[in-house]
Design a protein around this nucleic acid. Structure first.
Lengths: 335, 335
DNA sequence: ATGGATTGCGAAAACGTTTTCGGAGGTTTG
DNA sequence: CAAACCTCCGAAAACGTTTTCGCAATCCAT
């Protein structure tokens, strides 16, 4: 392994000078600078991250807590895209990213302990909030943290604009002539609360009643749960003409339930999803949905983190809201 | 930050003893052992990964080169699943994983340089071989490396059993009565070569000719390319009755091309994919395909790497072949 | 020429661990 | 009772950097 000392020997100077030359310190002469750089290049010098981190307490490494429930055995596209954006942008900004696990060497750690162990400069939480307390501990650990798509107080977050998203969807469906709209929503999370509230609010504004039974709980990314909920809705004496699904994947479950009844979308009932994943746009009929800019959310998370680190802040400021985008497909029939 | 020294002071012993106690060295007395462990626990001691890595030259960190062409804007499910398996198993084995990028701090590095910089204990290559020489450099860097789904000589790899996979598919289609089978294959990679060879071999065994024009080049995960190839095939004077696609995503392109001609699957032409991703099983008609055990491939990659590391080997042995599984759907019509 | 500023470099300490080696004290053996 | 042997612990060096501070040499202005 070629170290700074080796270069120093080669160039007839001290390790200190080599370090400074390589880091562009101002107090090293031009000639010496060139000599050292040339030698480093030629000898194939690669700095040692561990030594550097030990000395500077900076790792240029972000941790990411990434759990995608994977109930469907599916690598979930939304989170994958967020992760992608986060990784790409982090790299551009000069940071590596690592997954935060719960086991290391032969010991078990909590997320927060893990992050401290590795000395991450920052942490992103890209996950369904499956286990709150450990995440809470991480957020409170003093390491700059940003969450994606859910809020902890005192912690920066990047949120999708669920309010405007629901508004766009409801308005669109309303404009297509629908007056009886049901909403199968996800399990109890901040996102769900916001969407449900927005849904009700917009319906109220449009003068639409939301009858008993039109607001039915489902589970994010769980086609089976949506299938059941759909059957419930279709059994109502006053059937809705359009069903909102918690997400695009869930729509698939609903679609199957509908087809099993011998009915079809959108002839017998209209449907909309949420997310705008690739799959939905390949279906026939093409799914009407609201696309979330997952990639951009990851990008913004990386940027906020990097900014906090470079400014030496340990906390992140407020929330960043990323707008969505209505994707009109063919699953909403004009009435 | 609570260090080993602090514990030593607290317990009235030397740092050396603390280190040994915490690592379960044999030469520390029972009482002292307990005292130290209790103090460490109580003081909230977390070891410092950088210091440890610096001293031991072990990081308990695997690097993973993960590039998913993402031509479709899609987080590719196959690679995501491999990554998932790799990450999960690595964690169980006590390793963290980090993405290998090409930029770090304010400098650019090659993959190999990056891996050396971070001192990864091992590296997994989970990617379409987009840029050969840099990957080659990585594989040759002296860091234990395992590749998934492509081979470099002198480097361990985990491969899908493409030979048996193609055999299963062709046999199945043959059994359904098809005698005119075309194959749109991926771009030039080892996987493609193997699949094409296997395809031809099995056809020969079954006495099926492979006419000129039935072997047409496509691009992995590129629906547009498959659409074009499909149109070519359908324009042939002697049309195939069944088309093999390079993968499930590509099938979608073919499907669209077919529907645009006013034809449909499987009534007018049968089709099979490859991969067995979630999407394909949600389509109607359900796609007939060969499922690759992506998750398992990641798992095995992690295991091989960990084994090599713990045995102090710097190279990995041979190839590991993971069988696939035929998923009969509804896109192959019985003739 | 003399004084003060500026420039270019090095000595040394420090970051938090691990590991080697040896020594003190106690225990078994011949 | 001496010799050999364990058992338990500590001193110190080392891993590869970065950073502070001081020193010598050169520079400019007086």
């Amino acid at each position: 392994m070629v170290t700074i000392k080796a270069i120093a020997r080669q160039c007839g100077c001290s390790p200190a000078t080599v370090s400074k030359a390589l880091n562009g310190a101002p107090d090293v002469g031009h000639e010496m600078m060139c000599r050292i750089r040339a030698a480093a290049e030629e000898m194939g010098y690669i700095p040692n991250a561990a030594a550097r981190a030990l000395k500077t307490a900076r790792t240029y490494n972000f941790g990411v807590l990434f759990r995608e429930g994977s109930r469907t055995g599916l690598a979930h596209e939304f989170f994958s895209l967020v992760l992608n954006g986060f990784q790409r942008r982090s790299e551009e900004l000069g940071y590596d990213i690592s997954f935060i696990g719960t086991r290391l060497g032969d010991r078990d750690y909590t997320y927060a302990e893990h992050a401290r162990y590795r000395n991450y400069d920052g942490v992103a939480v890209i996950t369904i909030p499956d286990a709150d307390p450990p995440i809470r501990e991480l957020v409170d650990s003093g390491i700059p943290t940003v969450t994606v798509d859910h809020e902890f107080n005192g912690c920066g977050c990047v949120m999708s604009d669920n309010v405007q998203g629901m508004r766009d969807l409801v308005s669109y469906v309303y404009a297509m002539g629908h007056r009886k709209i049901a909403f199968i929503h996800g399990e109890t999370t901040v996102v769900t609360r916001v969407r449900v509230a927005a849904f009700c609010r917009v319906c109220a504004e449009l003068g639409l009643p939301v009858p008993e039974g039109y607001l039915v709980p489902g589970v994010f990314h769980d086609p089976a749960a949506s299938a059941a909920a759909t059957r419930e809705l279709m059994a109502l004496r006053d059937r809705p003409t359009c069903i909102f699904y918690p997400d695009d994947i869930s729509y698939l479950g609903g679609l199957q339930a509908i087809e099993e009844m011998g009915l079809s979308v959108p002839e017998d009932v209209s449907a909309v999803g949420y997310d705008g994943i690739f799959l939905g746009q390949q279906l026939r009929p093409k799914l009407t949905t609201l696309r979330q800019q997952a990639d951009l959310m990851g990008v913004r998370a990386a940027e906020e983190l990097a900014r906090a680190v470079s400014e030496g802040r340990t906390y992140l400021p407020g929330r960043i809201v990323i707008p969505g985008q209505l994707l009109p497909g063919e699953t909403v029939r004009r009435l």
